[in-house]
Design a protein around this nucleic acid. Sequence first.
DNA 1: GGCTTATATAAATGATCGTTTATATCAAGA
DNA 2: TCTTGATATAAACGATCATTTATATAAGCC
Lengths: 118, 118
Amino acid sequence: MDDAHKLQHLFQTLGDVNRLKIIKFIGNKEKSVSEIVEALGLSQPLVSHHLRILREREILHTKRNGPFIYYKLKNGKLLDALGLSLEIASSTKSKGRCDPMFCCPPRWRTRSHKKKGG
Amino acid sequence: MDDAHKLQHLFQTLGDVNRLKIIKFIGNKEKSVSEIVEALGLSQPLVSHHLRILREREILHTKRNGPFIYYKLKNGKLLDALGLSLEIASSTKSKGRCDPMFCCPPRWRTRSHKKKGG
DNA sequence: GGCTTATATAAATGATCGTTTATATCAAGA
DNA sequence: TCTTGATATAAACGATCATTTATATAAGCC
């Protein structure tokens, strides 16, 4: 697996709000599933689903304690990476779908580019 | 837009091999569309499609020079973030879809958990 | 104005992914 | 072994997305 594919895999994993919220909530601590469910206001199966993805992709690892399962970040550097990425994400002004520069009314409408009847 | 959504947007943008290859190829330089097409071996419409996304999401910006359009990174920090992210992505051993710990033959098959006829 | 090269857009398609609903496993206690 | 609380899995659905194919715009040259 080359670098680009490794990065793709990581970024696809991180490209979901709920997974990001989970990671942020866990931080450098350990959190049980029910804590996450309550804190984030998501359904328990949904949280379990995302935790499974984060676990399979080795972002988190687990520790069982009685009936509870505690999730923890596997690599503390991830929080640094998120911080740096947030700087970049915040440096963009328009969060919309289209840069104004490319959403202008088409100039060619004012010229004779019509196929027929022009 | 909160931080988590900003990050989601950025990571979704970066969560594609071809876009990552484009970014890596551009690096700190300026590259025209045809240069990218040739270097990456992708179709021209595909490259244009990804460039549009990277442009609309303010990862790249453009400069026209005659018939050529040159693309350039908008924020140099992005390369640093990619470097740090690659460290994290490379620190995971198995790049497969499933952690062995959770792919084991189910224990409950050896016990009497069957609904009927057990 | 036509012709050529460079780049962008649109429609169509197949695949992937997040969420919900329903159900199953797991540990603990009586 | 039954019950209860905690967590995991599965099926189904809708939505999003990457890619291809086909076509349109833009600039430069004659």
